[in-house]
Design a protein around this nucleic acid. Structure first.
Lengths: 130, 130
DNA sequence: ATAATTGCAAAACGTTTGCAGTAAA
DNA sequence: TTTACTGCAAACGTTTTGCAATTAT
C-alpha cells in the first residue's frame, strides 16, 4: 500500500460520495453501487473510503457511524435528530478556535463542529401531527 | 421506565462517572465497578448511562465509542489522537453558533465541539523519540 | 401486587482483517 | 513479475435486546 494503483471500484466509490449530497456512510455507498457492481464487496468500500480519507481526498465525519464528505475543507455540519440526515452548515470554519483550545498545552490540529436539531422537512411533519 | 425507582447500581455508576475525570466509556465504568460489584452486568451499565443521559443527569459525548460526562453544561472537548484521552477544553460554549447555524432553516438545539491533536504528555514522548 | 431493574446470554450493528485469487504497473 | 487491490467470509468491538428472576415501591 506504499503506492496506489488505479482501481475502478475506488473511482466509482469516490464518484458516489461526490454526487451524493447527504454525506453518505460506507453502507450507503455500497447500496448505491451494488446494482451497478453486483460483485462489489463492503470491505472494499470501507478500505477505499478510509484510504481516500487518509490521502486527503475525502473527509471523515466522526460519529456513531462514520460519514464521508468530498469537501475536504474543514466546515461545520448539521445532524437532524428526526431523520438522521447530515448537511453542511454555512458558517465559516474558525481556525482561531484551535488556537484558543491550545491554551491548555495541547497541540490542536483540527476540530469537528456538529450541530443537532430538526431539519425544515421534519419540522413540517411534526407541525402536522400537533 | 415511566417512573424511575432507586437503584444501587445506577448510583454507583453515576459516582464513577462523577469521580473520574477522563469522560469514561461504558466499558471503563464497568471495569471500575467490577471488582466491587462482581455480579454487575455490562448491559446494566449501558442501560443506566443511557437513562441518565436522557434524564439530563449526564452528558453523552458522541464519537466512535460514546463517552460520558457528569458536567451536563455544554462545553467543548479535546481528544488526544495518540493516547485517546478526552479532556475538557476551557473555551466558552458559544450559543450564538446555534443561532448562526439555524440560518438555513434548521431548528438547532445544541452542538458538539471536539478538538483533535496531541496532549502535552504524548507530545513529550514523541519529542524523546526524535 | 405492580412494574422497574437486574444479570445473563444472544443478537445486532458498524467496521476490520486474513486469505487466496485478480489485475494494474 | 511484482504487489496493490479485490471478493468473500470470519472476526472484532461496541451497543442493544429478550427473558426470567429480583427488588423497590
Amino acid at each position: 500500500m506504499l503506492l496506489h494503483r488505479y482501481s475502478f471500484q475506488r473511482e466509482k466509490i469516490y464518484q458516489i460520495v461526490r454526487e451524493s449530497k447527504e454525506h453518505p456512510t460506507a453502507e450507503m455507498v455500497f447500496a448505491s453501487l451494488k446494482p451497478e457492481l453486483p460483485k462489489l464487496s463492503l470491505g472494499t468500500v470501507y478500505r477505499n473510503l478510509h484510504q481516500m480519507a487518509q490521502d486527503g481526498r475525502l473527509q471523515e465525519l466522526p460519529g456513531p457511524t462514520v460519514r464521508f464528505d468530498c469537501n475536504t475543507k474543514p466546515h461545520a455540519h448539521f445532524t437532524c435528530e428526526a431523520c438522521g440526515k447530515v448537511s453542511d452548515v454555512e458558517i465559516p470554519y474558525d481556525a482561531g478556535l484551535d488556537f484558543l483550545a491550545g491554551a491548555g498545552g495541547c497541540q490542536v490540529t483540527s476540530h469537528a463542529l456538529m450541530f443537532y436539531g430538526v431539519c425544515p422537512q421534519c419540522a413540517g411533519k411534526q407541525e402536522k401531527k400537533a
